[in-house]
């Protein structure tokens, strides 16, 4: 009982250790943009609420990261002097997002979508939305959205060409996240996977089904290499569990033998 009481505090903090090992979302400081717009209702407050659930918010990218301005000075926050850009015109959107998403912008601009920019062609926001932007998945290619501009046939071909590779990328991301949670250093592999995912998603933006098909094999082979390394670590973890079990069994046997030895001396003592 005493023993249990002694270990109780450890048991109590155990779930906290798991919380500590979970990746913490980036902290976004409360800027004057959020203070003012967050308190407003309707059109002017909506962007803050949408942004809060976005991948940008999760990574600490706040209003001024895209719209410029001074996030620390209420009076000058929206002054062009402090670099405020406001809302970009439709044709300027790829350039606006492409200040950070350089590679994707390049592929988009040379694609059929990009070449139709300003003539009714889609830009970043058409598919990804603006403030509520999420991590891109092949689900962004869907009948409802694509048929706003053209028929779904070709888009569907691209979707089927990318879906399998994307599924394997997601699976690997989950395996790496699970390994990271138990304290295995995955930074290098996660980086490789992130880079691969990014290059693969750039490929979508070419909206060229032949290009996607011809490059998919190379991506799959790279994925296979990372998967091989992940499998080797998982195998090693299984082996460790097995050895751990064997050591525990050996210690139990050792304890029994020690007890027998001890008892034989005690018997001698009693007899003598």
């Amino acid at each position: 009982m005493k023993l249990i009481l002694r270990f109780l505090p450890i048991l109590a903090v155990w779930p906290l250790l798991f919380l500590l090992s979970a990746p913490a979302p980036a902290q976004v400081p409360e800027t004057v943009c959020i203070q003012c717009h967050g308190a407003q209702s309707g059109r002017l407050g909506e962007p803050v609420r949408l942004w809060k659930g976005s991948i940008h918010a999760a990574n600490g990218i706040s209003c001024h990261g895209c719209h410029g301005g001074d996030p620390a000075d209420m009076a000058m926050a929206m002054s062009p002097e402090r670099g405020f850009l406001g809302k970009p015109a439709e044709e300027a959107i790829p350039g606006f997002c492409g200040r950070c998403h350089v590679g994707v912008k390049e592929d988009y601009l040379t694609s059929a979508h990009g070449r139709a920019l300003g003539r009714g062609g889609p830009q970043c926001v058409t598919c990804h939305g603006s403030h509520a932007v999420r991590m891109a998945t092949p689900d962004l290619i869907n009948n409802r959205d694509c048929t706003r501009c053209h028929d779904y046939g070709r888009a569907n071909e691209i979707k089927s060409a990318v879906s399998e590779t994307d599924r394997r990328i997601t699976e690997l991301e989950q395996s790496l996240a699970a390994m990271h949670r138990i304290g295995i250093a995955t930074r290098e592999m996660s980086g490789e996977l992130f880079a691969l995912r990014n290059r693969f998603h750039r490929l979508f933006h070419s909206v060229d089904v032949e290009k996607v098909r011809s490059r998919t094999a190379a991506f799959q082979s790279e994925l296979g290499t990372i998967r091989g390394r992940v499998d080797a670590i998982e195998e090693e973890l299984k082996r460790r569990k097995l050895w751990g079990g064997a050591v525990v069994a050996l210690l139990v046997i050792w304890g029994i033998l020690a007890w027998l030895l001890h008892r034989s001396y005690m018997d001698d003592k009693k007899a003598g």
């Binding site: 200040r99 950070c100 998403h101 350089v102 590679g103 390049e106 290098e188 996660s190 980086g191 490789e192 996977l193 992130f194 880079a195 990014n198 750039r202």
Partner: peptide, 21 residues
Amino acid sequence: HLGCIIRWLPENGEFLCPCHA
């Protein structure tokens, strides 16, 4: 940052990461 492969921009004399600039 997150592991993308940088490229060299000779005209600017600097490296650029195509993922998040």
